[in-house]
Amino acid sequence: MHMLKFFLSIFVAAWFVVSAPEISQAGSLLQDLENALMCKCDDKCGKVLINCTCSTSDKTRAKFTKLLDSGLTVDQIIKSQVDKYGETVLSAPTKFGFNLTAWVMPFVALIAGGVGVRKIINSWIGKKQKPDSEDVPEEKSATPGKYSKRLQDELDGIEL
């Protein structure tokens, strides 16, 4: 039950991170656009607009500045770009439909891995406890409680 809660909380946290709205670093609208869109130059540079320094990217920035000044919103400009070039102009997959798998899959894999690791550790701990309880019960009971605790504390402190 604890394990379930643990992984459920990880999942909720991950979901929160994924679904939280993106806030730009400097807060400028142009920067939002530069982060959200790819450069569509003839050289097919494959760079996000904010990372591109080619002449096409400069022209695109100037165009976006004008469009923003004319009163268009960031979403409207992004939509017009998607209509023109297709989804490939977006710098990241959308968060609906098939594209959602891009966002969710890493966390699903991580959670599955976490469950696997937890199970493996539990099975290893189980192996260890079983022979201990069967083989050496007398030795354990022969050691006085306070010395046993002190020994355990000392052993814990030893760096192998």
């Binding site: 490939t88 990241a92 594209n99």
Partner: peptide, 14 residues
């Protein structure tokens, strides 16, 4: 049948 781009916003968020 649609080629999309996976750029920095994806990697940073994940």
């Amino acid at each position: 049948g649609i080629k999309i781009t996976v750029g920095p916003p994806f990697y940073n968020q994940v």
